[in-house]
């Protein structure tokens, strides 16, 4: 654990909670892409299946459970509790155009051809593009609310901090995960937009 990774994780957590609180407090999910949130729930679910197979640390386990829980809570608020405020007409990105190629890529390029590892790879690739429905929605409606901008900023910051984390880990631990790094760079570039 280094300072970049910790602040990256906390920034990620802040983004998730900012979005959840915004929807809860305003009783509205206007301007939020439900499709992006479903993709993030899918990302966390497929990535954290190792909760069932390996224990890394209490921190690691708790954060995973919190991320999964919050992402499902967000999806629930958008599609169930406050679905009357969900702007489905503007959330028209075709997610199959992301999920299918990303699934194919995960099968082709991975560290190990095993179910858990392919799902982990799938989640890494999917996370890098999961925000596209949200960006697409903003481009259609023309304007993002301030709080949505804060959410996007925290998510982008999280990825940028993880890049510094990987540079740190490469120098001090010799750690190098090509799949995570390439996907992380793609993701960071998308958020710069």
């Amino acid at each position: 654990m280094n300072v970049f990774r910790l602040t990256g994780d906390l920034s990620h957590l802040a983004a998730i909670i900012i979005l959840l609180l915004k929807i809860w407090k305003t009783r509205s999910c206007a301007g939020i892409s439900g499709k992006s949130q479903i993709l993030f729930a899918l990302v966390f679910t497929t990535r954290y299946l190792d909760l069932l197979t390996s224990f890394i640390s209490l921190y690691n386990t708790s954060m995973k459970v919190i991320y999964i829980g919050c992402s499902y809570a967000t999806v629930y608020l958008i599609y169930m509790k406050f679905r009357a405020t969900y702007d489905g007409n503007h959330d028209s990105f075709r997610v199959e155009f992301l999920v299918v190629p990303v699934g194919g890529l995960a099968v082709l390029i991975n560290h190990d051809f095993s179910p858990l590892e392919i799902l982990w790879t799938f989640s890494i690739y999917l996370e890098s593009v999961a925000i596209l429905p949200q960006l697409f929605m903003i481009s259609k409606t023309g304007e993002a609310e301030t709080i949505t901008t804060h959410y996007l900023f925290c998510l982008g910051l999280y990825r940028a901090l993880y890049l510094f984390n990987w540079i740190w880990r490469y120098y001090f631990e010799g750690f190098f995960d090509m799949i995570a790094i390439v996907a992380g760079v793609v993701q960071t570039v998308l958020y710069c937009d």
Binding site: D50, T53, N60, D112, L116, W120, Y162
Partner: peptide
């Protein structure tokens, strides 16, 4: 498990 990759990041 043995031979399994361990992903320690979130």
């Amino acid at each position: 498990a043995e031979g399994e990759l361990l992903h320690d990041e979130l």
